[in-house]
């Protein structure tokens, strides 16, 4: 591991002052970044420890919930308001990693975790445009069973690995950011970039910009929401496909719906085509299938991940069936 300077930020002003240093990175629980540094994928000159910044989870004036970026993933999943009002978020977090990692990983770090594409990690043996711009991509013609089918490009097909982000994308979450120049907020769905011809630029964050918190808006339909993850083993594995969904039904008709997909996209994938297709439709498998197919119509499967298209359609149907069982 390359040598680096370490500084612990006591508050946001402190953090962004250190964070604007050249080649500085913010450090949360370290569950991803420490590993990337050992593999020399990441080689920061300085780490700014932001784990002692705000980690509180509290209600907002508008009936939502604000989560400090330093909140540990386990703390969020355990919080009574999250379990009652945003169960998809609790379920998504509990489906990710292991208990030890959830005790370490912060919300801010989870948002900014890097892909688990094996070629991205293989510094000495593989080409990767995300790690080394312009080098080429060994995944496109390689072992791409775990790779993305939505939001891909001829430069990169790496999957965004987070479970938590998929639930946040579905639940209209907003990300709060701080920079030396001031603060701003973004919808979570605007934070991550699809790779295009610059897969190395993964988010819209400016150098030195810090995630300070995530806000969930008041969203009554989220009380009936869930997260389903399909993976190669029953626990402690990344998603092949995952679905976060919330739905509101009246007299057998879908009034409103939120849907996001994991394991299939280069970003946490909000399924807006599916949502539009579903609103106003009668609850039932035909409408659910049409909606899921509308979203997956843009899929670009490769040699080994074509199964994800139908798996995603079936998982969407399964989750919507589960959420609307009493209405059918």
């Amino acid at each position: 591991m390359r040598r680096f300077d370490y500084a612990r930020a006591e508050d946001v002003a402190d953090a962004v002052r250190y964070g604007t240093r050249r080649d500085a990175l913010y450090l949360g629980g370290g569950t991803n970044l420490v590993d990337l540094m050992r593999e020399t994928v990441a080689q920061p000159a300085a780490l700014v420890d932001v784990t002692r910044l705000a980690s509180t989870i509290e209600g907002t004036e508008t009936g939502g919930l604000r989560i400090g970026a330093a909140a540990r993933n386990s703390l969020v999943a355990e919080h009574p308001a999250v379990r009652q009002r945003y169960p998809a978020l609790a379920r998504a977090i509990l489906a990710g990693a292991s208990a030890q990692i959830r005790n370490m990983a912060t919300v801010g770090g989870n948002l900014l975790q890097r892909t688990r594409c094996a070629y991205f990690y293989d510094v000495e043996g593989s080409r990767c445009n995300r790690r080394s711009p312009g080098q080429g991509c060994d995944a496109i013609e390689g072992l791409n069973r775990g790779h993305a089918v939505l939001g891909t490009s001829s430069s990169c097909i790496a999957t965004h690995p987070s479970d938590m982000c998929v639930a946040l994308a579905a639940l209209d979450a907003v990300v709060h950011l701080a920079h030396e120049d001031g603060e701003r907020s973004l919808p979570l769905t605007a934070l991550h970039r699809v790779p295009g011809d610059r897969p190395d630029i993964e988010t819209v964050l400016r150098p030195g910009e810090l995630v300070t918190g995530v806000e969930l808006p008041r969203l009554p339909l989220a009380a009936r929401s869930t997260y389903r993850k399909v993976r190669d083993r029953a626990s402690y594995a990344f998603a092949l496909v995952s679905v976060a969904a919330a739905v509101e039904v009246e007299a057998g008709i879908v009034q409103d719906v939120r849907l996001a997909l994991g394991g299939v996209g280069t970003t946490p994938w909000r399924a807006r085509h599916a949502e539009e297709t579903l609103r106003g439709q009668a609850v039932g498998e035909p409408a659910f299938r049409r909606a899921a197919q509308a979203e997956l119509a843009a899929a670009v499967p490769r040699a080994h991940n074509g199964f994800k298209v139908e798996l995603a359609v079936r998982t969407v149907i399964g989750v919507l069936n589960e959420l609307t069982r009493e209405e059918a």
Partner: peptide, 13 residues
């Protein structure tokens, strides 16, 4: 009291 992975933890933190 919380279980963590010491291999991914930088001691200074």
């Amino acid at each position: 009291g919380a279980r963590i992975l010491s291999c991914l933890a930088l001691a200074v933190q």
